[in-house]
């Protein structure tokens, strides 16, 4: 306590840092998201939308796969990031009701880095790459929609037909889906 004062004055000479009326600072989470956003590589198949451009912690990512079984569809994901980012992962949910083995009817996504494998060194780009990959390679061994996973495992061609039907707004196994075709 006692020595702090003199120490500090020495530092002050070296440092031309400043003081003055204090205003609200950009938070650590905002700063990190700002950095992550500047490093996104969205390519031609993805884009972001910010309902409130001043709030960079909440946005929508739209993916339009240009290959694979989900080609021609348009899928949007809500990203909700809290002030505890990057300690906490972003919360990501699919906005449409879609037929996908790793996405349930509520829009929950089974992607390891969104939950059990999240680490603060991962960034938003890793998450969007992961999401994009889910449309290229739906994974039957980590099912969130059990029916879709079984279809994919047992009959790949049948699964493809189901994907087309669901994307067109049709029903699969008695469950109706949202039209997500462009």
């Amino acid at each position: 306590m006692l020595k702090l004062w003199s120490m500090k004055q020495e530092q002050q000479k070296a440092d031309n840092a400043t003081s003055g009326p204090k205003k609200k600072k950009v938070t650590a989470a905002q700063l990190r998201v700002q950095k992550d956003l500047s490093e996104l590589s969205l390519g031609s198949t993805m884009k972001t939308t910010f309902p409130n451009p001043d709030d960079i912690l909440n946005f929508v990512l739209t993916i339009e796969p240009d290959e694979g079984m989900y080609k021609g569809g348009r899928f949007s994901f809500n990203f909700a990031i809290n002030q505890n980012f990057p300690h906490d992962p972003p919360k990501v949910k699919c906005k449409e009701k879609i037929y996908h083995p790793n996405i349930d009817l509520e829009g929950n996504v089974c992607l390891n880095i969104l939950r059990e494998d999240w680490k603060p060194v991962l960034n938003l780009n890793a998450v969007i790459v992961g999401l994009q990959f889910l449309f290229l390679e739906p994974n039957a061994s980590d099912p969130l929609n059990k029916d879709a996973a079984e279809d994919l495992k047992s009959n790949r061609e049948g699964f493809k037909r189901n994907v087309r039907a669901a994307m067109g707004g049709g029903s699969v196994r008695g469950e109706s889906f949202e039209r997500v075709l462009k």
Binding site: Q34, S38, L40, L42, T48, T49, F50, D54, I56
Partner: peptide, 20 residues
């Protein structure tokens, strides 16, 4: 890329924020 606590002043990327 520049912001205050409450406001996005200018973003170089992504495209939608740049536009906004």
């Amino acid at each position: 890329t520049i912001r205050t606590e409450g406001q996005s002043l200018y973003y170089q990327a992504p495209a939608s924020l740049e536009e906004a």
